[in-house]
Amino acid sequence: MELKKVIKAEKLDEVLNLLAENRERAKVIAGGTDFVIQLREKKIAPEVIIDISDVDELNFIRKSGEFIEIGAATKFTTIKNSGIISDAFKGLKDAAGHVGSPQIRNLGTVGGNICNGSPAADTVPALLALGAVAVVKSKNNTREVPLEEFYLDRGKVKLEPDEILYAVKFLNSKPGQGLGFVKLGLRNALAISSISIAVFVETDNDINCKDVRIGSGALAKFPIREKEVEAFLKGKTLHEDVIEEATEFFGKILEQRLAGRPPVEKDYKPYAIKGVFKEALNKALSVVC
C-alpha cells in the first residue's frame, strides 16, 4: 500500500475512530523507534499512519485502587524516573532504564515495546513477572488480557485491526514482595538483550518463597513466563543451595529448549542464564521490604 495520509492525533477517541474507519489500512506509531525502521525497510506499508505519541490519555502512570496502571504511550524515561512505581518494583524501572540509549528512551514507549512483539523487548519480562494485564480498547469495546496470553508469535500480538493497547496494569507492591531485573547484552548501551530476566518474589520473614513469577526475554519466540522454574522454587526456603539448584535447573530447561538453535544460543545461553538468573533473584530479594 502507498502511504497516503498521516495524522497526529490529540485525543484517544480520534485514534479509535480512525482505526475503526481504516482498519488494516492504518497503523499507529508511538515513539517510532521500531516503526520508522520497519517502514523504511518496507516491512510495513500502511496507507494511513496515526501518531499516538502525544495523546495525553495514553500517557500516564497512576495508582488505581490496588493497581498501578501505565498508559501505552508512556516513554521509558518516564517509567525509569517514576515516583509512583515503588522501590520494591524498581526492577521495572531498571528494565526501562536498560532500553537502548537516552535518545531511544526519550522516544520509545512501553506500548510499542509490547506491541512490536520482539523476543528481546526489555520491559516485557518485568511486566510478565508482575503478572501484568493488557488493557485493550477499540471504538466500542474495552477488554483485558493477561500479558502472557497477549502474544501470538514473534512480532505478533492479539490485537484486532481496530484495537490499540491502551494500558498495562499490575497489582501494586505489598510488604514481602520484590522485583529484580537483569539484562545481558554485548555492552551497556545500545545493545539488544541476549538474555533478560525479571524475577518477582513474595517471601515471608524466613525467606520462604510464598510466590514467585519469572519473566524471560530472548529465550523464546517472545517473552514468556518460566513456569517450571517458578514451580521449582515455590514453597522452598531461598537458601543459597536452593537458589543454586534452581539455577542449574533453569540451565537444563534451556538446554532442551534451545537444542535446535545455532551455537551462540544453544551453547551460550543455558550457561549464561545461571549468572543472570541468580543475579535477578538476588536483586528481587534485596528490594523486598
Partner: peptide, 19 residues
C-alpha cells in the same frame, strides 16, 4: 533536542514534529 529531550531525528517522522 525536541521539547527538552534528546532524540534521534532519524526515528521521528516529520509530521510527528508538528507543534
Amino acid at each position: 533536542i525536541m521539547d527538552g529531550n534528546l532524540v534521534t531525528s532519524c526515528l521521528v517522522m516529520a509530521f510527528q514534529a508538528d507543534g
